[in-house]
Design a protein around this nucleic acid. Structure first.
Length: 455
RNA sequence: GGCGGGUUGGCGGAGAGGUUACGCAGCGGAUUGCAAAUCCGUGUAGACCGGUUCGAUUCCGGUACCCGCCUCCA
């Protein structure tokens, strides 16, 4: 089965040909752990989770290595520690676990390796030393800087020329830089900042070097896929390429670069000032199931901006509810439907795959629907709690309504029955009364708290 | 200023140079104590201007508008 992916490096959709089909290797940039993951953070996690699942399906479970890092040394973390009075270790440990919990809630499998930057400081120091030795970096005033002039390809991934970037630069250039675009590999730490001994004094790594060092340690000097949000294209990925390709000439670093587009909320960029900023945990706490978040994320192609709206969440939960009902007692087919698989293989077209699944549902191909959904990390038993949860509450109501209805059928007075029904409908319960009896189901927008309060 | 992306029907959102996308909503019907659900049927597209072509919403060029990045950011 051929997989096609749009490679940012070539701007083309290409046939994916792994360097080694027995060990397909993928690196995705993970979070800097200083706070809860916001909704935008979840997009690449979910997108690359689907790619991971697809690669495992095509090449075999034991033949894919997926690495996603935690950046646990960063000035944002230092700032958070300073303002909260907590230690850096506490903050990063807590935030790391939050991330894993929240991403687990949206159905993401854990990568094979989740390296922490602080565990790879010696490797970074070694790589920086090597870059200096090869003439690609220089020490200045306690800093070590990468020399962009030493790497002719600098700017190629993001399609920028060094000259253009200087022209558009809006930041002041540090005096110790030989070239305005030179970026920091190592910087000095004051006593109250985290730091490690190095040939250039006590200090800490710059932002980009951790990914280069960890990718090399875990995946080697060349590997198949490197992914992340497209805001990372420049400077982060550009700098990673420069560091890695100069440290390991001939390795080539990542063959395929994948970038997901950004997330918006109700048509606007998510930002604290607009008041539309929220974390994955916020949504989960509001009762939006992780499976619904996942479905919404997958209903837009990863290379297009994705707009998070309440309307989409509502529609997603309706669809999932319908599908879950359909496949409840169905054994999944051994393989996903070919149409779904082919669509996914075409540049990870998850939106198209969902459309194909709608067709499976309407054709009654339920085992295939279930298998296909599970390929996307949907309709799994592990994520279905939100559908079952209201069941117990509804059982009592179901009896009560059945009795009321029997009475009403005899007396021809439906007033009390209608009142009960309206009460339930009001809190989001769907009420179906047919010849076979009364069937209650929690609708997508059921308000459990209100339901509990009803008497 | 530089770089990149987008513009599809009421809404969301895909693919394909020529044949129904799909979902939601709508409309008509069946069904129902009333409904819901379900089933059957059904309508509405591809920013604008050129070009290539027998034929373009789909390829190419231009215009307009929108968005992202260039500073920490997924």
């Amino acid at each position: 089965m051929d997989i096609f992916l749009t490679n940012t490096a070539t701007r083309k959709k290409e046939l994916f040909a792994p360097l080694n089909p027995d060990d397909v290797r993928m690196y995705v940039c993970g979070p800097t752990v200083y706070d809860r993951a916001h909704l935008g953070n979840a997009r690449p996690v979910i997108v690359f989770d689907v790619l991971y699942r697809l690669l495992r399906h095509v090449y075999g479970e034991g033949h894919v290595t997926y690495v996603r890092n935690f950046t646990d040394v960063d000035d944002k973390i230092n700032a958070r520690a300073a303002e909260s009075g907590r230690t850096i270790g506490e903050i990063t440990a807590e935030t790391t676990q939050w991330f894993l919990d929240d991403m687990g809630a949206v159905g993401a499998l854990e990568p094979d390796h989740m390296p922490r930057a602080t565990q790879y400081i010696p490797q970074m120091v070694a790589m920086i030393g090597d870059l200096i030795a090869k003439g690609h970096a220089y020490a200045a005033e306690g800093h070590v800087l990468f020399s962009v002039d030493s790497y002719a390809e600098y700017g190629r991934l993001s399609g920028r020329s060094v000259d253009d970037m200087i022209a558009g630069a809006r930041v002041e250039v540090a005096p110790y830089k030989r070239h305005p675009m030179d970026f920091v590999l190592w910087k000095p730490s004051s006593d109250d900042q985290p730091g490690w001994e190095s040939p250039w004094g006590r200090g800490r790594p710059g932002w980009h070097i951790e990914c280069s060092a960890m990718a090399f340690e875990l995946l080697g000097e060349s590997f198949d896929i490197h992914g992340g949000g497209n805001d990372l294209m420049f400077p982060h990925h550009e700098n990673e390429i420069a560091q890695s390709c100069c440290a390991h000439p001939g390795g080539g670093f990542a063959k395929v670069w994948l970038h997901n587009e950004m997330l918006q909320v109700e048509g606007k960029k998510m930002s604290k000032s607009l008041g539309n900023f929220f974390t994955v945990r916020d949504l989960l706490d509001q009762g939006v199931p992780g499976e619904v978040i996942r479905f919404v994320m997958l209903s837009t192609h990863y290379r297009k901006p994705m707009d998070w709206t309440e309307q989409k969440a509502k529609e997603a939960s309706r669809t999932l509810l319908k599908w879950r009902k359909l496949v409840q007692d169905v054994v999944a087919a051994p393989m996903p439907a070919p149409a779904v698989l082919e669509t996914l293989c075409d540049d990870l077209n998850t939106a198209g795959a969902i459309a194909a699944m709608h067709e499976l549902a309407s054709q009654g191909a339920l085992p295939e629907l279930k298998a296909s959904a599970q390929m996307l990390g949907l309709l799994g038993d592990d994520m279905g709690d939100w559908v079952e949860r209201p069941g117990q509450l509804l059982d009592a109501w179901s009896q009560r309504l059945t009795q009321a209805r029997e009475l009403a059928m005899q007396t021809k007075d439906f007033a009390e029955l209608d009142r009960l029904k309206a009460t339930l409908v009001d809190v989001g319960v769907s009420v179906q009364m047919s010849k076979e009896g009364v069937v209650l189901a929690a609708g997508p927008e059921v308000d459990l708290a209100k339901l509990e309060d009803l008497t």
